[in-house]
Design a protein around this nucleic acid. Structure first.
Lengths: 136, 136
DNA sequence: GCTGATCATATGCAACTGCGTATCATTGTC
DNA sequence: GACAATGATACGCAGTTGCATATGATCAGC
C-alpha cells in the first residue's frame, strides 16, 4: 500500500481523541482550551499571560476571557508579580488542582483504554517517540 | 515528571506538522483540505460526496465549494454514477495525480527529516502504532 | 404511480480563529 | 525626567467551522 502521510495519521488520531475527551471534559464543565490551561499551569505557574498563551499555542487576546472564566470559577488566580507589576502571574488554586486531578484521571483512563492493544514496552516506546517529535 | 497527556503530545506534533506543511502546500496552490481530498481520492475514488466528506472528516456542505475549486483547476472530475444517478462519483484527473505526486514528494521528504532522529526500526514501529491508533 | 429515503446542492447562523491594532500602566535605559 | 519597550486588556475584522435546514433530483419498495 502507498505510504500514508504522518499528518493524516495524526489528524485521525486527533479526531478520535477529541471525540473521546469532549464528553469527559464537559461533564466537568471544562472546554478543551481550559483544560489545556489548567494542565499547563499544573506543570509550572505562568510568569505572565503572554508566556502562557504562546506555551499552549493559544491567542493572547483570547486568553483573557478564558482566564476570566477560570478565575470566576475559582480555578486559577492572577497575581501581580512583585518584581514587575506589569505581569500577572497565573497559578492554580486548590480548587483548580482538584478539578484538574478529577478530569485528568478520567482522561488517563480513557487513554489507557485506547492504548490497551500495545505491550508495555511498545507503549513506553511510543510515548518516548511522540515526546521527542513534539519537542522538536 | 507528571505523565503528559496523549492529546497534548499529539496537539504539539500537529502544530509542528502544519507549520512545516503549509509553505509546501501553498507553493503548489493547495490548501490543507484540498490536499486531504486529493490524498484520499488517490487511495480510492469516492462513490459520492457525502462519503468523501465523512471519510476525511470535513463538512459535507463545505465540501461542495472545495470540489468546485478543484474541478475548476482540473484536478478532479465529478461524474454521474451510472447505477444511481443521484450520486456524483469523484476521482482524480491525471493533472490531479501529478499535482498530488509533486506535493506529496515534498511532504514525505519533510517527514523523513522530522523522523531523522529515529532508527529505521523505531520508525517502522512508530508508523505501525500510529496506524493502529488512527484506525481504532 | 405514490411515498419515503437518499444524495447533491445551497444558504444562513452562531461560534471560534488568527490577526492587527489601540490603550494604558509599568519598566528599564539613557 | 524623557523615552522606548513590554505586558495586560480590549476591540474589530475577515475567514473558517460545525450545524441546521431547505430544495430538487433520483431511487427503491410497495
Amino acid at each position: 500500500m502507498q505510504r500514508e502521510d504522518l499528518g493524516s495519521l495524526v489528524g485521525r488520531i486527533t479526531r478520535r481523541l477529541i471525540l473521546a475527551e469532549e464528553p469527559l471534559l464537559s461533564r466537568h464543565e471544562l472546554s478543551m482550551w481550559e483544560y489545556g490551561v489548567l494542565t499547563h499551569l499544573a506543570k509550572e505557574p505562568a510568569a505572565n499571560q503572554l508566556a502562557l498563551a504562546t506555551a499552549i499555542g493559544y491567542d493572547k487576546s483570547r486568553l483573557i476571557a478564558l482566564l476570566d472564566g477560570l478565575a470566576r470559577d475559582g480555578l486559577v488566580v492572577r497575581e501581580q508579580d512583585p518584581t514587575d507589576r506589569r505581569n500577572r502571574q497565573v497559578r492554580l488554586t486548590p480548587a483548580g488542582e482538584s478539578r484538574l486531578a478529577a478530569v485528568r484521571a478520567e482522561i488517563h483512563a480513557m487513554e489507557d483504554e485506547l492504548l490497551a492493544g500495545l505491550s508495555a514496552a511498545d507503549r513506553r516506546a511510543l510515548i518516548r517517540m511522540l515526546t521527542d517529535l513534539a519537542n522538536g
